[in-house]
Design a protein around this nucleic acid. Sequence first.
DNA 1: CGATTACGCAACAAATTGGTTGCGCATTTC
DNA 2: GAAATGCGCAACCAATTTGTTGCGTAATCG
Lengths: 115, 115
Amino acid sequence: MSRTGSDAAGARRRQHAAVFAALGDETRLALVAALAGGQARSITQLSGGAKLTRQAITKHLKVLEHAGIVRSARLGRESRFELDPTSMRELQEYLGRVSAQWDQALARFKALVEG
Amino acid sequence: MSRTGSDAAGARRRQHAAVFAALGDETRLALVAALAGGQARSITQLSGGAKLTRQAITKHLKVLEHAGIVRSARLGRESRFELDPTSMRELQEYLGRVSAQWDQALARFKALVEG
DNA sequence: CGATTACGCAACAAATTGGTTGCGCATTTC
DNA sequence: GAAATGCGCAACCAATTTGTTGCGTAATCG
């Protein structure tokens, strides 16, 4: 296992881990789903169907925002959140790269056995 | 925001959240990277380059295993871990669906404005 | 057989996370 | 202007996570 240091690859890995961690919660996934429709929503709107407090939802939204998954803008007395799928697309590519690497390794193994 | 209850969609969401959470850690991402090459490795091998104890690595591996990202098998006196990319592929599809939904929403918005 | 290697288990300790409550402030609304 | 709405801040609490250390045991090597 390579080290967990602060080189360039490590920084990318750290960023990926942060986004993964932000998505690693049921409530936050529900928020992402609610925002995936493309329409920006206020905190009370997003707190509507949940069993949690508005404050809890606010904290979850801040986690998502800090990970770059979501953006917010104050509009009058309400602050509206909208999705920014950029970081999620990056994760998707990352997962694709790992899967591809695995597939290649498997192909090499098959060729070795069958060859 | 829809509720966080225990319906079928909620169960899927819970599973996704668990896998995301398992990947939401730098050390565990490094382990995944080390195993992506396709070769099964023992715990001491995987602990080699890390600054953590073998026990810490063991715990991380158990987290990955519990999330279905990794499988283990005892072989002699060592227990060897290998990647199982199935759950990661599922996450990749999930992220793709969210992105696609976002893109569609954006397209509808553009059509509405320009139309 | 004795020493070494690889691991598992359990008991901590410290830090982080997820959640609530109480309060105050700005913005609408009537 | 007074009431209501939407939100932010801070304190606090319980549970989980992350990591260490110590020890025991099974497998391997000489």
